[in-house]
């Protein structure tokens, strides 16, 4: 096969995939605002996506905050390190590391679980069965997961912010002998509301990406156990890459001025 044929095939394949994804997102989003609403399922998904992700996200945030404090201290000028460490930990966690690392951890956990569950439902015809029972599968399966993820991710990241800053605080006061009161004062002085809200906006977008990728790949899986496995991998990989790409775009938009 010649080079142009290969390039052509790749381009067409990619365009077809983008088209299918756009259609999928449109179908799902349009069902968010049309009754009936499945509140029970939203609550159930919030528990599964949000609450059960807490330990993972909390541990990630704590160790990241701690490591960040050490890096800044070792790498920085030790003259005014006391004020710099507190400030940079607070800004780094709330603006970037909290949402991005939290998002990636949840992507690994939740996108995979959603893709595996919906993928199995697809290959065992359970999704077709929904249609025959006059229930729209987008409304019943996709919408609750997307809504739950968009709502819970900011909450998770807010908790991650607090725990991440605490991680920095514990390391700074514990092993670097900083004054606790000064650390808290520096954090409070330099941290602005915008820093936190920008991170939470990012988190909501990441939540959308995580749930949508899990659902999309699960819905389109075919070919038995192997197909479900492939869907799971693709869901995690695409969700992670889209989170990082979206993070860059949002950082450049949110902090442009």
């Amino acid at each position: 096969m010649n080079v142009f044929a290969i390039i052509g095939q790749v381009v067409l394949g990619t365009l077809a995939e983008i088209g299918a994804l756009t259609r999928f997102i449109w179908l799902s989003v349009s069902h968010i605002f049309r009754p009936p609403f499945f509140w029970r399922l939203v609550a159930q998904q919030m528990l599964r996506i949000g609450y059960f992700s807490l330990p993972v996200v909390a541990l990630t945030a704590f160790f990241t905050g701690g490591a960040l404090a050490l890096q800044i201290y070792y790498g920085g000028n030790s003259f005014n390190s006391e004020s710099i460490v507190a400030t940079i930990v607070a800004l780094g966690i709330t603006r970037e590391l909290g949402p991005v690392l939290g998002g990636l951890m949840v992507a690994g956990r939740v996108s995979a679980a959603i893709a595996a569950e919906l993928g199995t439902m697809r290959v065992t015809e359970q999704i077709d069965a929904l249609t025959t029972l006059s229930t729209n599968p987008h409304k019943y399966l996709v919408v609750p997961r997307v809504v739950a993820a968009v709502v819970t991710l900011p909450l998770l990241v807010f908790i991650a912010d607090i725990i991440g800053i605490m991680g920095g605080f514990v390391v700074s006061t514990g092993s670097l002998d900083f004054n606790a009161g000064v650390y808290v004062k520096n954090t409070a002085d330099f941290l602005k509301l915008d820093d936190v809200t920008s991170g939470l906006i990012k988190a909501a977008v990441f939540g959308f990406i995580i749930a949508t990728m899990g659902c999309f790949h699960g819905f389109n899986s075919k070919g038995g156990a192997q197909g479900v496995g492939r869907a799971t991998t693709n869901a995690v990989v695409t969700a992670s890459i889209l989170i990082l790409a979206a993070n860059y775009v949002m950082t450049s938009l949110l902090f442009a001025n």
């Binding site: 439902m121 065992t124 015809e125 359970q126 077709d128 069965a129 249609t131 025959t132 006059s134 729209n136």
Partner: peptide, 19 residues
């Protein structure tokens, strides 16, 4: 279309029960 679907019932090959 949804109204028409209400007239249908279907038994799937693998039963396709919601587990």
């Amino acid at each position: 279309r949804e109204k028409v679907l209400r007239k249908f019932g279907m038994l799937f090959q693998g039963a396709a029960l919601f587990d």
